[in-house]
Computed example of a mutant assay.
Amino acid sequence: MSGHAYEHIAAELRGAILDGGLPPGARLPRHADLARQYGVSEIVVRQAIDALKNAGLVETRGRGGTWVRERPPVRRISSQRYLADLGPQTVKQTSFTRDQGIAWEQYRLDTAYRWIDADERLAGLFGVAPGTRVLERHFVFYAAGVPSQVARPCLLASDVEGTPVADPKNEPWPGGTINQLRTLGIEVDDITESVTTRMPTPVEARTLRIAQGVPVFAITRVMYAAGRVVEVADPIVIPGDRAILDYRIPLRPLP
């Protein structure tokens, strides 16, 4: 067996998982059986299984063995997704439900609101002075009962304090933030997003039920109305094994 033995074992098991020989929910052979099959020690087998865990392909369940993980549905995230939030809202939806292909009844949004003073990063993104009063919102998005996205979208107190937008009891709101701000006479007309990849924080991994070794997309979104920043979502976090980012790039001169 050339190279590192554990890499060879991991590659064979990975191939069986990806081609369906070991389907989602299947239990892998016991470590002792794999060790006999490949003529290696159980330590080498554990190294191979750890490599599969880090790739998000298998999971261990206490002393119940190692199992092939269920493959999460892949969400295609379009660069034009926010068009779903433009009015009028003839059908209850948001860009999230549209991307997920779920009905409103299959959508759940857990929320936590608090008033904060903007730190230097948040103030810089808003283009305001540090210490400016901001409504910080923490959202966990569920699609058909599965936690699929977390976000920290923030709004300026000067725009929303004392309005229905600042009341978490009104969530989820069809049309999302764009429609919320429209009810206040604020028309979002431009959005920028910066996308990076990183490993999840422990809280993100627990909340989103992310397997060990699976990275996330971390998106910083800024919404504008007539050139003024009216919302900053920093970050939006989406598991990397559940999403494909689709971008449309029109090839025409900018005004």
Rank of each mutant, 00 (worst) to 15 (best):
Q89I: 10
G64K: 10
G25T: 06
L57V: 05
G127Q: 11
I186A: 01
G240A: 08
V214C: 06
I116M: 10
E70R: 12
E171K: 05
P172L: 10
Q149V: 06
Q149M: 14
S95T: 10
T94S: 07
I17T: 05
L156A: 06
R228S: 07
D234F: 03
E70L: 06
T90G: 13
G127D: 08
S158I: 12
A112Y: 13
A233I: 08
P174S: 11
R121A: 10
I236K: 03
L52G: 01
D189W: 03
I49Q: 01
R182K: 13
I43Q: 15
L28N: 00
V146Y: 06
R228N: 12
P72H: 04
W67E: 00
A157Y: 14
P164R: 10
S95E: 07
T177P: 08
T201K: 07
G39W: 07
P172V: 11
S194P: 11
I244Y: 05
Q93A: 09
L125N: 03
V232I: 11
V195M: 06
T66D: 02
G3S: 12
V203D: 15
A151P: 03
P202Q: 13
Y113S: 09
R137W: 12
G185S: 13
P23L: 13
L251G: 08
A32Q: 15
W115D: 11
G175N: 00
D50V: 04
A118E: 01
R76I: 15
L156Q: 10
S194I: 15
T201Q: 04
Q89W: 08
D85L: 04
G3W: 11
R98D: 13
R198H: 09
L109A: 08
R46A: 06
G20Y: 04
D159W: 03
S95P: 03
E70M: 08
I9D: 01
D190G: 14
L13E: 01
A11F: 13
D246M: 13
D117T: 12
